[in-house]
Design a protein around this nucleic acid. Structure first.
Length: 278
DNA sequence: GCCCAGGAGATGT
DNA sequence: ACATCTCATGGG
C-alpha cells in the first residue's frame, strides 16, 4: 500500500546514514522485522510503497514523513555549510526508532565503525531475535530486553561485541527493572539526557543518539569524531571538550540542531564536504 | 606493527 | 572541570 509521497531516499536513510543498522536491501526493496512482523519498503514513482504487517501511522512516524523538511531547510538557509549539506542529500530523514533499539545499537557503536556496528547488530538479531521467513529472504527481529538481560557475557562475547558485553546485559536489566525508556520523549532534553547517562555504556554521545534517533528530541546533538572535526572546520567553533561543543551547537542551531547534525555528519563522513581530518 | 572507528569508564590532578 | 589510559575488534 502507498505510505506517502513525501521526499524519502530509502537507501540513504535506512542503510547509508548510520542512524540505524538493521535494515537489509534485497532487489531494490528494504526490509526489517519489528514486533508486529516484517516490513518491506520500496519506491514506486513518486511514492513509498509498503507491504507486511504494520500500522501505517506508526510507519509514517518511524520514517519521519510527517515532518516538513523544506521548512527545516529554510530554517538553516542562512548558514552556508548547513544549507549545502541539506542540498546534498534530498530525501535524508531522521528516523524515530524504538528507543530500545537505538539504545542497544548505539551502545555497540562506541569506539567502533559503521560496517562493524551493522555486523554486530545483525549478529545480535540473528542470535537473540525472532526469525521471520519472507520467501527468499529471512528477517530477524530485534532482541527483547528480557532476552538480553538473560544472556551470558560469554554468549555475547562469542558474537564479538567485546568489552561492550556487560554494558548490554546490565542496561537490559535496568530497563526491565523499570527504567522509564518510553517516557524520555516526554521529558525535557536535559533531564532525559541525565537519566540516559546513568545507564552503563551510555555516555554523552550515545545518550544524544538515543534521544535524537529514538525519542524525538530533535535538538539532541551527538558529537562523534566527525562532528567534532566539522564543527571546528565549518563553523569555527573552538571548544575543548565535546560536551561544550554539543552545548554550543544546540545554542547556535536551536530546536532542530540534531536534524541538522545528521546532514552535516553524513556530508563529513562520506567526504561530500571536506574536513581537515585532525 | 600502527592508526582509526557515530566513546565510555576509571583514575588522577 | 580537564587529561590520560584502557577497554575488543577488524580494516586500512
Amino acid at each position: 500500500m502507498l505510505i506517502g509521497t513525501e521526499p524519502l531516499d530509502l537507501r540513504l536513510t535506512l542503510i547509508d546514514s548510520a542512524q540505524c543498522f538493521r535494515w537489509t536491501e534485497a532487489g531494490g526493496r528494504f526490509g526489517a522485522a519489528f514486533a508486529s512482523g516484517p516490513v518491506w519498503l520500496w519506491s514506486a514513482g513518486a511514492g513509498i510503497e509498503a507491504e507486511g504487517n504494520f500500522d501505517p501511522v506508526a510507519l509514517r512516524r518511524y520514517l519521519d514523513l510527517d515532518r516538513d523538511y523544506a521548512a527545516i531547510a529554510a530554517e538553516y538557509a542562512h548558514i552556508p555549510a548547513a544549507r549545502r549539506a541539506i542540498e546534498l542529500f534530498p530525501g535524508l530523514r531522521v528516523l524515530n526508532q524504538p528507543p530500545w533499539e537505538a539504545l542497544i545499537c548505539f551502545i555497540l557503536s562506541a569506539n567502533n565503525n559503521v560496517s562493524r556496528i551493522r555486523a554486530l547488530t545483525d549478529a545480535l538479531c540473528r542470535y537473540f531475535g525472532r526469525r521471520w521467513d519472507c520467501g527468499a529472504a529471512t528477517l530477524y527481529g530485534f532482541p527483547t530486553p528480557e532476552r538480553l538481560a538473560n544472556a551470558s557475557e560469554d554468549e555475547l562475547r562469542a558474537l564479538k561485541v567485546g568489552y561492550r558485553a556487560p554494558y548490554l546485559i546490565e542496561t537490559a536489566r535496568l530497563i526491565l527493572d523499570g527504567f522509564p525508556l518510553d517516557g524520555l520523549c516526554r521529558l525535557h532534553y536535559g533531564e532525559a539526557h541525565r537519566l540516559l547517562t546513568s545507564l552503563p555504556g551510555v555516555g554523552d554521545k550515545v545518550a544524544d543518539c538515543v534521544l535524537l534517533f529514538g525519542c524525538g528530541h530533535a535538538s539532541a546533538f551527538p558529537v562523534d569524531v566527525w562532528v567534532d572535526r566539522l564543527m571546528r572546520d565549518w563553523f569555527g567553533v573552538t571548544c575543548k571538550s565535546r560536551a561544550a561543543l554539543a552545548r554550543e551547537a544546540r545554542v547556535r542551531l536551536g530546536d532542530h540542531a540534531g536534524l541538522m547534525q545528521q546532514f552535516l555528519f553524513h556530508a563529513a563522513r562520506t567526504g561530500a564536504m571536506e574536513t581537515t581530518r585532525k
